[in-house]
Design a protein around this nucleic acid. Structure first.
Lengths: 345, 345
DNA sequence: TTGCCATAGGAAAACGTTTCCGGAAAGCAG
DNA sequence: CTGCTTTCCGGAAACGTTTTCCTATGGCAA
């Protein structure tokens, strides 16, 4: 005999009562509850999750889906691990466990998610790296699995999401450069199929126009968000007919490759070209001259993600009365040397 | 009605037969099996994992425990994500899913593991960052949960583990430096409480003695495995009475801090001091002069870990007849400029 | 025809838990 | 003492599977 039955046997109490005692149900004498808890501690009894889940239809676990394709592994760095701190700090208050579900690189993320959802191994999901059209979102909506997306998407109608403040970053970066006299500002961004690539460049365009400047598609360099992409961006920038005097990078890791290409051509960042990076990245921390960039706390972002998710789960509605909602996550400017010079006389 | 019952209803077949058909059991007509599979595909039916686990006593999931304390987040970089690629490639062949279980930073890893084990949410575990005395190992042995440890430990008797070839690296690094005429070789390592700190320094001592050199405890600088630790190591190195001409770093990230401290003192790495790093680390990739270091493939290590684990699981014994075993994982030398000079005339 | 074996599939138990329901005991007001 | 409420607990059903056991059917040999 095992499990709760064993425990009940030892205490000479019915299993129903043991269960109620352990789960803090009201209909149980405080005296017996103490005995049960003591015995459970003594025997190291913890309820079998499968039995529990089966009966309750709930797993007490939240899934964080991770797409570990090659690019993610290269780029995401400690991104997910950084998030988990914030996520856990919220979840643990509700006795929820976080499980990270890494999608195999040779499997379609949609199919993987579908399997995980169907298996009912978690109660809710956190997905990231959303696409503009993202079937995963439709799937989760249809399956009625609570979820939160890190990244906007036009799929799925009105679902909870958090996204970085691309508009704010673009506006801030452009304003900063314009104030220093720059009039030809390039941007290196991924393809507009990627949400980030689309939204950021649009925000950049609007920021330019607010300053009465003309948007020039030639100054938008489409490359991958990687070191190689940065090198490529540097290369294409040098080939432009009318040279820009500044460039905004959508991901700070690109700066490493960009610097390298520029150095090869004898162009010195921070003197001949102003450079601003988007998201702070440890690997780029040691560049000379230090990169001006935008920073955010992964931990805080994790907390916000967790709370947004719980707010979308009926069972936690009373804790987070705000309900399902969306958030634009602000980033903080960290001034460096890479854009310190001014073109004004 | 839901699940397999619904499916059986639709097909006008008993649920037992449906289950057998889906699980590839022999006692079912090929014709009906086809019908069942088609209907399952059609309806998107996937067996509920809780029901399955409860009945079978198995979860078809392998847990990878992650300790995401602050230091891990800072240092691990893409370590775990890099591993998952290799892990998944093996597990997916056996229809096993990998779940990453991040231990909350404010919870004792031992208690966390205990909870996960008791909940029976995975069939087997992978643990890492083992201590010389590691209660987790005793726990897993006692609970009879198959596991593999990344890192040696004196706990738990004869259990499966994989560890990096510290001896090989120490021998290779020392031999290389000695060949270039170095006679005073320092090493920067963490406290000997940490397994790594203990074993590596011991291997270093043996390597020295094989070359007929004397082990000098003063040349062992105990610092944290981080950038700050590297800076600290540089600082302490400069204070030594008899200056070493070379230093071996136990973790490459330390090189960043070390370089910084050396530069401040006008000591040029690769000219005034030879530097060799241990494990390749993307963030240190951009140092000048390029660091000589030892590299390994995280993916391959993941494959080996997965196979070692499966070999320790009775259910997979026929696939991996080797059974439980241990492996010393070799690393490959990547020559750089940081130790290129020679002291010989 | 009879008997036997192989094949296919149905019925039901079992996994470990939670929760609903009902009932005993005790307390209390009249 | 009676009737009603409250407190506490035991019994049993239910969650969705897999698996064991058993039966029905058909084929085949004697």
């Amino acid at each position: 005999m095992k499990g709760i039955r064993q425990l009940a046997e030892n205490l000479d109490i019915s299993i129903g009562t043991v269960s109620r005692a352990l789960n803090g149900k009201p209909d149980v004498n405080e005296e017996t509850r103490k005995r049960v808890l003591a015995a459970a501690e003594e025997l190291g009894y913890v309820a079998n999750q499968s039995g529990r889940s089966l009966r309750q239809g709930t797993t007490n676990a939240i899934g964080l889906m991770i797409e570990s394709n090659k690019e993610t592994v290269e780029n995401s760095d400690n991104f997910f691990l950084g998030l988990t701190g914030g996520l856990q700090s919220v979840f643990s208050r509700h006795k929820l466990d976080l499980v990270m579900l890494p999608c195999p690189s040779d499997e379609d993320p949609y199919e993987y998610l579908k399997r995980m959802v169907a298996r009912r191994v978690v109660d809710a999901m956190i997905i990231s790296a959303t696409q503009r059209i993202d079937r995963r979102i439709d799937l989760l909506v249809k399956a009625k699995i609570p979820f939160v997306a890190l990244g906007r998407s036009s799929s799925g109608g009105n679902h909870p999401w958090i996204d970085l403040d691309f508009e704010g970053v673009a506006a801030s970066a452009v304003a900063r450069l314009v104030a220093k006299g720059h009039r030809k500002i390039a941007v290196a961004a991924p393809s507009s199929d990627i949400n980030l690539g689309y939204i950021f460049v649009d925000a950049y365009r609007q920021a330019l126009e607010r300053h009465g400047m003309k948007y020039d598609p030639k100054l938008v360099i489409r490359v991958k968000s990687s070191e190689q992409g940065g090198y490529q961006a540097g290369h294409e920038l040098l080939l432009l007919d009318s040279k820009p005097t500044a460039i905004i990078l959508i991901y700070e890791l690109m700066a490493i490759g960009l610097y390298r290409r520029l150095m090869e051509a004898g162009v010195v960042p921070g003197r001949d070209l102003a450079v601003i990076g988007f998201r702070e990245e440890p690997r780029a921390k040691f560049l000379q001259p230090a990169l001006t960039c935008f920073r955010m706390s992964l931990r805080d972002l994790g907390v916000e993600l967790a709370e947004t998710l719980l707010a979308a789960m009926p069972a936690y509605a009373n804790f987070y009365p705000k309900g399902a909602h969306n958030t634009i996550w602000p980033l903080e400017l960290v001034p460096g040397e890479s854009d310190a010079f001014s073109l004004e006389p």
